[in-house]
Design a protein around this nucleic acid. Sequence first.
RNA 1: GGACCUGUGGUGCAGCUCGGAGUGCACGCCGCCCUGUCAAGGCGGAGGUCGCGGGUUCAAAUCCCGUCAGGUCCGCCA
Length: 570
Amino acid sequence: MRDLLCGNVDATMIGERLSVCGWVAKRREHGEHLAFLDLRDRSGVVQAVVDGSVDVRGEYVLRITGTVSRRPEGTVNDRLTTGEVELTDCQVEVLSAAEPPPFQIDERSDVDEQVRLKYRYIDLRRDKMQRNLRMRANVNATMRRAMERQGFCEVETPLLWAPTPEGAREFVVPSRLHPGEFYVLPQSPQIAKQLLMVGGLDRYFQIARCLRDEDLRADRQFEFTQLDVEASFVNQDDIFAFVSEAVLDAAEEATGERPGPIGTMTWAAALDRYGTDKPDLRFAMELHDLSAIFVSTEVKAFSAPTIKAMRVPGGAEFTRSRLDTLTEHAKSLGAKGLAWFRVTAEGLDSPLVRFLNPEESAAIAVVDGAQVGDLVLIVADEYALACKVLGALRLVIGAPPVSQGPHRYVWITEFPLFEGVDEDGNLVAAHHPFTMPHPDDLELIDTEPLKVRSQSYDLVLNGWELGSGSVRIHRADIQSRIFQALGISDDEAHHRFGFLLGAFKYGAPPHAGFAVGIDRLVAIFAGEDNIREVIAFPKTQSGADLMTGAPKNITERQIRDLRLKFAPKV
RNA sequence: GGACCUGUGGUGCAGCUCGGAGUGCACGCCGCCCUGUCAAGGCGGAGGUCGCGGGUUCAAAUCCCGUCAGGUCCGCCA
C-alpha cells in the first residue's frame, strides 16, 4: 500500500514515484490551482504539492502517490527533516474521512488532560506520545536483552492468583465455578518467582504487570509494569550487578549516554542526610544535626530530642509570605513549626533570634558553610519527623524539574526489617515477611527488633523510588522466628503462605531478587513528571478510564452467574 | 478519609478581588478570495446550560453553601 514512511522521504529519492500513507496534519490552499498537504505518520511529516484544490480536511487518512522532487530555490524548510524535498504530481486517495478532531494535534497547544484521555486515540497521534511509547518499547527490549545476556529465563506467572492478605490492597476477581470464592490479581509476582527458584529456574525475569488497589498518584497507577528479577545462589551485590546492567543499558538506549556505576548509601544515612529513603542527589542542601548544641537550650521551640537544620543557598531573599507557606507545609506534615534564620551581614535575622544564646547563634550561622544571603531552616521534633519534614521542604525548595539535571542513581541499602508496631502490638514488616535479616543483627530480633537491619534495598533515581528487592529467607528456622515476631501464628502462616513454606521444605536455594518500575524509569528518561505520559491508556486519579467509561456496571446475567449480591450503600 | 488548585463557544486563555446585557483574545470550524506555502495570508460568518444544584441580591460567570469531574499532595502503596 505504501513504499515508505512520510518522515523517511529524502533527497536520495528525487525523481522516484512513491506512495506514502498518513493523516492530514495541515493543509494550505492557494485557490483552485495550488494546495499543500502535510501528511503525517509515526515517522514524521512530508509535504505534498497538489495542483488544484483538494477536497480533504485535517486528519483525513490519505494515500498519496507522487514524485519526489527537490523543492524550488528558497522554499526549503529547515525545520522539517524532509524539508529539502516534496511530493509533486500527486494522486490523492482518501482512505478514510475525518471529522474535525476535538483538539488540535500539535506540540504547541496544551490541551486539558481530561480531554486528552477521553480521546486518547487522537492524543496518541501527537509526536510526544509517539516518542514516549517508542522509548518505552526500546527500554523494554533493551532490558530484556540484558537479562537474557546474563543468563536469565523469562517466565510468565499467573494473573489469577490466590489472596495473600497483608501488604497492598488486592484487586479481587470472583470465581464463577466456585461461587463465593475469589482470585486476586497479583500486587507483584513475589511468591511466584520465589517458587520458581525452588523449582530450579535459577535466574528468572519477567516484564510483569502488577496490580494494586491503592489510591493513585502522579507516579502510581492501579496497574504498572516491573522488570521483575529473581536469582538463586547469589548475594545482594550480584543482584545489584544484574539490575545495574539492565538499567544502565536502558539509560544508554533512551538517553544516548551510559551513566557511571551506581553507588550505595545506607537507609540510615539517607534519612539522616536527606530526610527520606529516596534522596534526590541532583542537588545538595543536606540536613545537619544541631541536637548537641541545643541539648539544654532556653528556646522553648527547640526543646525536642532532635534539632535538624538545613541551609538554603540564597534563601535570605525569601519573602515573609513564602516563609509562611513553607511553615504551613511543615505543619501539614506534622511539625509543630518551622524556624527560619536569615544570614545577613549584621548577623541572624529571625523572630527567634533574641532567644538564642551566642553559642547557638554561632552554630546556626555556619550550618553547612552558610554565607551571608543564605537561609537556615530548623525543625525540632522526634528524630524521624524532623528528618521527614525537612526532607520534604528540601524538595519543595530545591528540587529541579524532572526534565532537568543529571540522572543520579543510588542503591539504598540496609533498610530496617520492621517499620513499627500495629494496633495489636505486633511488629510490621518493612518490606515483606520473607526478607532476610542482616546477619549481624539476628540477635536483636528478640531484644531490639526495631534496630534490626534487613538485606533489602531500593534503587533510587532523582528522588523517585525505581524499585526494591531483598535477599529472601530460605531457612525454615529464621522464617519461623520472623513470623513469630510479626505475630503470625504457625496456623496462620500455614493458612496464608502454606504453599510457599511447603515448597521450602523440599530444598530451597538461597535466593534474592529485585523489581524495577518501568513506568517511572521511562517517565524520567522522557523528562515527564507524570507516568500517565508514558502509558498508552492510563486511568485518572479516581481510577476512571475516561475513554471506555470503566469501571462500569455488569449485566444482570453476569451478576447471576457469579452469584454476587451487593450490600446497600452506607 | 483529608488539604489545596482548576472547571467560561470545538481547543487554550482573559473576565471573578470590587456583582450591572455572554464581553474580549489566540487557535480551530464554515463560506468567499488567493499559483510556493509550511504557525500561509485577506475578507466575512457560525458557534455559549460560564460543570451541576441551591442561596444572597433589583441584578450572579463574578459573592455564599453543597455537589460532580480533573489535577497535586497527605493518609494509603508488605
